[in-house]
Design a protein around this nucleic acid. Structure first.
Length: 907
RNA sequence: GCGGAUGUGGCGAAAUUGGUAGACGCACUAGACUUAGGAUCUAGCGCCGCGAGGCAUGGGGGUUCGAGUCCCUCCAUCCGCACCA
């Protein structure tokens, strides 16, 4: 019997799609639009493993489904092709990153294409193409030439910035530069010596770089910054408008870290300076028995008394040497030094000592705190260690605890805060205390954010050059738009310089330029943009990747925005998604895009982990024992290449041939087989658990791989890859094929389907559509299997059933569906077909035996169906609703009817 | 520490609004057709029990005629954030 030849069929249809541009997006259409987007990949040298396509398969199914449902679908793919690995490879080998990147992209595209994705490759983009980064630079200039209007809470062109009267030329320029959304600042940045570059806060995790895990230190440097903090409130509030997973919304909220409280001034005793602190608990101000400044705080020297100067200087020196990693070590006990100076608590009027400590961060709030040891854990620890006074001012029951053993961080009744305030509810006192301090001029209500402005420069080669020049007299100017793109120049070496300047600085010829306004010599900016820049707006460029005149056509942007479905990994929860939203909002303010948020619905596909296999070697021998026997010996587990293992059974010969070391190995088998152990780990080369989609496709075909990846479990869930179950899907594909065949010949009958067959079909239509709509793609695959099992046992080969079923399955197994579709005498691609609709009349329940409960106790069974059964109680079934008729006796007190399920009667 | 997610057979999992828990698939067992099968088909497959029946969705408690699903509480695993004032 001729079996389904997936390999020929898949090649045939992939060639057909490519040749006919089957999936070319229609720009103009009266159909409703649907924009379904994948997070585009960084084209790494390793190629795709079986985990990468998970999200792409899901979006491809949705894209194909929406086409069949009559939507005009945009489903593009591109490459985030600026990035560190290509540059590091370049440093090692001298190979230009563009060459490496091109080769990697070629490989990626091949791998994507054999999966049968319906991308419109005419829309492809690469962030490292000058034609693309021309517009990344253009957006940079827009940010450079805009300011944030605080009253309207939106970006406006810098030309509209109101400038105070009477400023000198230099002051005026400084004033403008101070308001730009992209601006330069000398700040303490996260400098990573190993990578030779500055990193954004978001790229530093626990004191080490996100990429590579190298130590990061703080170093003051002049950097380009993005004024993302202006957008804190909008980035927070407008999260409510999008359909995103709660966990991502929370991550973004936490990252922005908005807290409400008060900013309070503690004047120095001499009245010259004031230490401003931020507190979320101004109600505890009567308990503020000292203040702590961060070692980097600008007032430290002014407050320090001469006899404490030496100790303070030593402490400051030590703190500056510490990396963030060391400062963040949690279990270390608190350190600090008394400045010798005192400040005045504005509410009590008492003098309190001022200390410095590195547990107070210069980068958060005002860089100084009022310490309330009775009600803050950290302050309590500090006060206890240094013998500072602890004063309880909030109490749960209004009484004071004589000997506090821990900080009481909850709310309660105010005590020890003067007759005016004692007895108040502490939450209420927050408002009252702020009002009082505002009246006294000693404090005010304040909002504080954790989010800092975005450090936008990298001292790297492989990124977008920043399109500005520095003039002789120190002015910074954007280059004219007509000069874009500012193409990345060639350099001799890709290594960053030790002083922190970018590799671009090496090309002196390129750096030297002239100021177009004055004709005087000027220097180009040599830093480049961070990798996030290109991915901040790529979803807009897909609409018109070839548009040389504009970022995109406004009509097109209006038609396609927002992205209806965006699928990608949760690792971009804060970085990419926050930056992209920020840029989008600026573009929205300036009138270039039509919607406030770029991505309407976001789904995070889970990670596919590796499933490693192990063999067990008896210590000091070359004998391996099977999994079930290993406990009898002292064994060492050794990773074995999962590609030599099938259903946990080792291919012993292949294993022997895999390495010289194993040539002479001997094996202790169980039931004639060598069984391997298994464990879930990250998929990686070193663990020998990488499964390539290419290998799976060679063995089972792309349709099987697509369906199996969906079948594996819910899309959002992390799950280990396990090839063991793939046979089931493979069998299903062949079984489906066989429905259309009688032996070797294609045989589909035009006979009218039976009621039972119609029911199977319509059930399948309903289930598949419901499942895709809620992205439960695993259950829709199961649903297909049930359907085919049912039809198969009926030996149903009727066109009226099989044809709609082919359409239904085509988003999942497009190659198989196309082949069958053409054999069913259709000339056009199945993607031109229309999704069948279901008819309720075929979905009616059959006669069914229902349990009937009376008073929750009696249990009998009745059959409800077309015939009304006779009992003491007469029951009829109409469609799926059950109607009870009472012929004798009293009507029951309570009748609970659950359609299709149980009749529950309380008499 | 704070926040989020998850917990169902030997395994991956289903159960969409509370309504016959374990669909579907893997593995396994038995059988059929076969020279053979890693092909195909049929049947079985949560646990205890010969059986009728009983017990089962991480543990305990609650609401309900009815709970995997809702509420309280505890436990475990994974993932974020973390001296954020």
């Amino acid at each position: 019997m001729a079996e389904y030849n997936f390999s020929d069929v898949e090649q045939k249809w992939q060639a057909y799609w490519k040749e006919n541009k089957t999936f070319k997006t229609k720009e103009v259409s009266d159909k409703p639009k649907y924009y379904v987007l994948d997070m585009f990949p960084y084209p790494s040298g390793a190629g795709l493993h079986v985990g990468h396509p998970l999200g792409y398969i899901a979006t491809d199914i949705v894209a194909r489904y929406k086409r069949l449902k009559g939507f005009n679908v945009l489903h593009p793919m591109g490459f985030d092709s600026f990035g560190l690995p290509a540059e590091q490879y370049a440093i090692k080998t001298g190979q230009h990153p563009a060459v490496t990147t091109d080769a990697n992209i070629k490989r990626f595209k091949e791998q994507l294409n054999i999966l049968g994705f319906s991308y419109d490759w005419d829309k492809e983009l690469r962030t490292s193409d000058p034609s693309y980064y021309k517009w990344t630079q253009w957006i940079f200039l827009k940010l450079f030439n805009s300011y944030f209007d605080l009253t309207e809470k939106k970006a406006r062109p810098i030309s509209e910035l109101p400038i105070p009267e009477g400023l000198s030329k230099e002051e005026k320029r400084a004033f403008i530069d101070d308001h730009r959304l992209a601006y330069q600042d000398e700040i303490a940045v996260n400098w990573c010596p190993a990578l030779g570059t500055v990193l954004a806060n978001e790229e530093v995790i626990g004191g080490v770089s996100e990429r590579g895990g190298f130590p990061v230190i703080r170093k003051p440097m002049k950097q380009w910054m993005m004024r993302i903090t202006s957008y804190c409130d909008r980035l927070l509030d407008e999260l409510e408008d999008v359909d995103w997973p709660e966990s991502i919304r929370l991550s973004q909220k936490n990252w922005i870290g908005k807290s409400l409280g008060a900013e309070i001034a503690f004047k120095t005793v001499d009245g010259v300076n004031e230490v401003r602190v931020f507190s979320t608990r101004p109600d505890t101000i009567f308990g503020a028995t000292y203040v702590v400044l961060s070692p980097e705080h600008p007032l430290v020297d002014a407050i320090t008394t001469p006899d404490q100067k030496e100790a303070i200087d030593i402490y400051k020196e030590e703190a500056s040497k510490k990396s963030d990693l060391e400062r963040q070590e949690l279990d270390k006990s608190k350190t600090g030094v008394f400045t010798g100076g005192h400040v005045i608590n504005p509410m009590t009027g008492q003098q309190v000592p001022a200390w410095i400590s590195d547990y107070v961060l210069i980068s958060y709030g005002t860089g100084a705190i009022m310490a309330v040891p009775a009600h803050d854990e950290r302050d309590f620890e500090f006060a206890t260690k240094f013998g500072l006074p602890i004063k309880q001012v909030v109490s749960a029951d209004g009484r004071e605890i004589s000997e506090l053993t821990e900080a009481l961080s909850g709310h309660g009744l105010i005590i020890n805060s003067g007759d005016r305030y004692n007895g108040l509810d502490s939450k209420e006192f927050i408002k009252i205390a702020i009002e009082q301090m505002e009246a006294d001029g000693t404090g005010k209500g304040a909002v504080n954010y954790k989010l800092r402005d975005w450090v936008f420069t990298r001292q790297r080669y492989w990124g977008e050059p920043i399109p500005v020049i520095h003039t002789e007299d120190g002015e910074v100017k954007g280059i004219p738009e007509s000069e874009l793109p500012l193409v990345l120049p060639e350099v001799e070496s890709y290594l960053p310089a030790e002083d922190g300047s970018s590799p671009l600085a090496r090309n002196e010829e390129w750096v030297k330029t002239t100021d177009p306004d004055t004709g005087r010599p000027a220097m180009r900016e040599t830093n480049t943009m961070p990798q996030w820049a290109g991915s901040c707006w790529y979803y807009l460029r897909y609409l018109q990747p070839d548009n040389e005149m504009a970022l995109g056509d406004p009509e097109s942007i209006k038609y396609w925005s927002p992205v209806d479905l965006y699928v990608g990994g949760a690792e971009h929860a804060v970085l990419h998604l926050l930056y992209a939203r920020f840029w989008h909002k600026v573009l929205f303010d300036l009138g270039y895009v039509s919607h406030r948020e770029p991505f309407q619905k976001l789904v995070n596909q889970g990670m596919i982990q590796g499933r490693s296999n192990f063999v067990y070697r008896i210590k000091d021998t070359n004998t391996f024992v099977s999994f079930g026997l290993k406990d009898k010996y002292e064994v060492t587990p050794i990773h074995v290449d999962v590609n030599l293992v099938d259903k946990d059974v080792l291919d012993v010969d292949a294993f022997k041939n895999s390495s010289h070391e194993y040539k002479t190995a001997t094996f202790e088998l169980e039931d004639g087989k060598y069984v391997c152990g298994a464990e879930v780990e990250k998929m990686s080369k070193s663990k020998l658990n990488v499964v390539s989609p290419d290998d799976i496709i060679t063995k089972y075909g792309a349709d099987t791989l697509r369906m199996y990846e969906m079948f594996l479990g819910p899309l959002e869930q992390n799950k280990p890859w396990n090839t063991n179950g793939i046979d089931g899907v493979f069998k299903f594909i062949r079984k489906f094929w066989r429905l259309f065949h009688d032996g070797e010949t294609f045989a589909v009958s035009d006979e009218k389907p039976s009621a039972e067959e119609m029911k199977i079909l319509h059930k399948a239509i309903k289930k598949t559509q419901d499942d895709i709509e809620r992205l439960s793609l695993n259950t829709s695959v199961s649903g297909f299997m049930i359907t085919v099992n049912e039809l198969s046992s009926l030996k149903c080969n009727k066109r009226a059933v099989l044809e709609p079923l082919t359409i239904l399955i085509s988003p999942f197994a497009p190659h198989l569906a196309e082949e069958l579709w053409s054999r069913l005498d259709h000339d056009e691609s199945i993607s031109e077909a229309t999704m069948p609709t279901y008819d309720e009349q075929f979905l009616k329940e059959d006669a069914f035996e229902y349990p009937v409960m009376i008073n929750g106790k009696l249990r009998t069974k009745m059959t409800f169906g077309a015939d009304v059964p006779a009992n003491e109680i007469q029951v009829a079934v109409l469609t799926s609703e059950i109607v009870l008729k009472w012929t004798e006796g009293k009507a029951p007190k309570k009748v609970i009817i659950v359609p299709k399920k149980i009749v529950n009667i309380v008499v």
